[in-house]
């Protein structure tokens, strides 16, 4: 299990990285924290001609206030997000979800930008990107562009990023102060990729009626999946257990072809998605002020 031959460059700036990517004749690959890419290299499943290490670029590792929300540099380590007081205050579900990513030794290297670019369907950050309406800031040869998370994930391990582009920043609105959230998953072992997971947010008005709901599933389809039918069901309804049960059942029903593998059949995943949605909605409603 030794990586194949490749060329390596560690640019000092985003511009330099972009020109390296643009000039590469063969396949280029960006390495950030490397926690997904390195196993693929060691197994020779990834075989880039050029590896561009963006870890030496100054100024991609930050967590900042941005208009009451957050701006997070692509190279920010997952463990820094986990420990950030600002993240805990502005986006508690981001902090909580981070703890579901593998183990501390992986989070010490893994980055938020790397995880979102890699787009594993069972990973935490792509789901949170959709659930929390992240704006994905991308640098490319023609300048910067901003992509809604909802438009970013195309299919399994495939995103809207072009081969000559680099994800540089994530922008998140602040979490509404009265909203509730819940992040749940089922995995074989603690720290494993989820067999199924859900990130849910909800706002409840003073009369106990749901005024906003967002349900995003992960681990069940090729990309993070919003369950809009169930969200619609919740909107304007009085929050109570029977509603969550109905929303859970609806969530299961909306999945036509969930992923299937040796750890979980499609039917089991469909079922888990419903169970987790029901449980997450109850918790999110409980947390909503």
């Amino acid at each position: 299990m030794k990586a194949p031959v490749f060329e390596y460059a560690a640019p000092q700036s985003v511009e330099e990285a972009l020109s390296l990517l643009g000039a590469c004749q063969g396949e280029s690959k960006i390495i950030a924290g490397g926690q997904s890419l390195m196993p693929l290299l060691n197994m020779r499943l990834a075989r880039p001609d050029l590896l561009v290490d963006i870890g030496r670029i100054a100024g991609l590792d930050y967590i900042r206030d941005a208009d009451g929300g957050l701006a997070i540099g692509a190279m920010t380590r997952q463990s820094d997000i986990e420990r950030s007081a600002l993240v805990a205050q502005r986006q508690p579900m981001l902090a909580a979800g981070t703890r579901f990513i593998a183990h501390p030794q992986i989070r010490n290297r893994g980055t938020i930008g790397g995880s979102i670019s890699h787009a594993d369907p069972a990973a935490v950050y792509p789901a949170l990107a959709v659930a929390l309406d992240m704006q994905i800031e991308v640098a490319g040869p023609a300048g910067h562009r901003s992509v809604d998370a909802a438009d970013f994930f195309i299919t399994y391990l495939t995103t809207a990023l072009e081969p000559d582009e680099i994800l540089v920043e994530l922008r998140l609105p602040g979490f509404p102060p009265r909203a509730g959230w819940s992040f749940k998953e089922v995995s074989r072992r603690h720290g494993d990729f989820a067999l199924a997971g859900v990130a849910a947010t909800m706002e409840v008005d003073s009369s106990g009626v749901c005024s906003f709901a967002r349900i995003v599933l992960f681990g069940v389809a090729a990309v993070p999946l919003r369950v809009e039918a169930a969200e619609q069901l919740l909107l304007g309804s009085k929050v109570e257990q029977s509603l969550f049960e109905e929303a859970g059942a609806m969530t299961s029903d909306t999945l036509d072809e969930p992923l299937s593998d040796i750890h979980a059949s499609a039917d089991y995943r469909r079922h888990l998605a419903g169970v987790l949605t029901r449980r997450a909605l109850a918790e999110a409603a409980g947390r909503a002020a």
Partner: peptide, 27 residues
């Protein structure tokens, strides 16, 4: 394991525990 699961190769880099099989030396 050389794919980051077993943790036997864990070292500290700048004070933080990391998998030394999931890093290039140049990094």
């Amino acid at each position: 394991c050389e794919h980051g699961v077993c943790g036997a190769c864990t070292v500290l880099m700048n004070g933080r525990s990391v998998r030394s099989c999931l890093m290039l030396a140049v990094q």
